[in-house]
Design a protein around this nucleic acid. Structure first.
Length: 372
RNA sequence: GCGCUAGUCGUCAAGCGGUUAAGACCUCGGAUUGUGGUUCCGAUAUGCAUGGGUUCGAAUCCCAUCUAGCGCC
């Protein structure tokens, strides 16, 4: 892969005590201040949240999902509407998942071969096939700023031989992705795999590091492993990736995951949790995670979090939000999605401020107990 | 006033002599990690209108009382 002039990453500071990183990733649709939490908008919308509200949360980049958009909107259609930015009228950076994760998460209806993956549509049962080349075509039609390599994600637990074979195939698929990718306005992030085996992770990290990419991802986490394993894996793997490039820990996470990841040198995170949790009634605060449906909130005149200045917290009380949930009014879910998204983005940006001031250790120690 | 019918969790109910008194909703908790999720999991009746009786055994049968609905004077 030749050097991509449309993207660059600047390290703004490295926390003196912890080594946590603050940086700026320049993309064709604007800058991303890291560490950053990226909200997930699988079907080219962050569920229940309008673009206007999303801009207000401070979202700097959102995700969309190749697998879902390929099946539903049709990626040629999206291309004809000016790509994802025109299609959903979103003017900031976008990242697309390759569909690789669905190979894992929808595993009971797929067949993996060296060529690619055959699977059935969740909804209509129709057969489809995605290969690294097809994934690149899909992602180039969608036109996100950052696109992901088509990888294979191992389940947890997973035996060594399976993990090794899977990792090697992911590497071969990566080479095919690189060959198939042509649009210089997009950055392809390779993904480090290797399950929970140090030597495989080392091999994979070294393999992907040999490719001159704009950024690198750590995949295969948040698949049901204990938190200590994830922390060990990240602590072991992140330093093996290029120091001067952003590192993206895929599918993570909770506020404590963000703290743990940032501490170990991760710059980018994404997770469905804030929006899914919001839909199911739980919300993040600087005092921990809470459930809006709890009876204790029925007369509570305070916002979800006293220190949050999201749209929801500026305008509504817990009592009102609880009422909306009790009545199954979707507005409640929408309002709380806004809050949870802004919470994690604010949280990542507070971490950034702390890093810029070389105070990340204090920030970590202050925040961590809140989420345990 | 008389007759008939019925009373089981906050609600709707199953049960019709031997059950640990189903289930649903509500209520109360909890889960959720590159989104098959308005989803999933758990908790909640020592008690069947009340009081007697029959029986080895009663929410289930009998009697009385109360309450409700319907009908008739």
């Amino acid at each position: 892969m030749s050097r991509n002039e449309n993207f660059s990453y600047t390290i703004d500071n490295i926390d003196k005590k912890t080594g946590a990183r603050a940086g700026t990733l320049h993309t064709p649709h604007g800058d991303i201040k890291t560490p950053i939490f990226m909200p997930v908008g699988t079907n080219s919308t962050v569920k229940l949240v309008t673009n206007q509200h999303l801009y207000e949360t401070g979202a700097q980049i959102i995700l969309a999902n190749s697998y879902h958009l390929y099946l539903r909107a049709g990626t040629k259609r999206i291309r004809n509407f000016g790509g994802i930015h025109g299609w959903m009228n979103w003017n900031k950076p976008v990242l697309t998942d390759s569909g690789g994760f669905q190979v894992f998460s929808l595993s009971h209806m797929r067949k993996i071969t060296e060529e690619g993956v055959e699977f059935r549509d969740i909804k209509d049962g129709k057969k489809h096939f995605i290969s690294p080349e097809i994934s690149m075509e899909i992602q180039q039609d969608i036109g996100a700023d950052i696109i992901m390599a088509f990888d294979e994600c191992c389940p947890y637990p997973c035996d060594y031989e399976t993990a090794k074979k899977s990792m090697e195939r992911t590497h071969r698929w990566l080479e095919r992705c690189i060959k198939a990718k042509t649009n210089p306005m997009q950055a392809l992030f390779p993904i480090c795999q290797g399950a929970f085996f140090d030597d495989l992770r080392k091999e994979s990290a070294e393999y992907v590091s040999n490719i001159d990419a704009v950024g690198y991802a750590i995949g295969g986490v948040s698949v049901g492993e204990p938190p200590e394993m994830k922390n060990h894996l990240v602590e072991y793997t992140a330093p093996l990736l290029p120091h001067n490039k952003p590192r993206y820990l895929m599918g993570v996470g909770t506020p404590e995951d963000l703290l743990d990841g940032i501490l170990r040198g991760v710059d980018m995170f994404d997770c469905v949790l804030p929006t899914r949790n919001a839909r199911h009634g739980s919300f993040f605060t600087y005092k921990g995670k809470c459930q809006i449906k709890n009876a204790q909130y029925q007369d509570d005149p305070s916002p979800l979090d006293e220190n949050c200045n999201c749209y929801t917290c500026k305008n509504h009380t817990k009592a009102y939000l609880r009422h909306l949930y009790k009545c199954e009014e979707g507005t409640g879910q929408a309002l709380m999605s806004i809050h949870n998204i802004q919470f994690l983005i604010d949280f990542s940006q507070k971490a950034r401020e702390a890093i810029l001031n070389n105070e990340f250790e204090e920030f970590y120690n202050r925040m961590y107990p809140c989420f345990k």
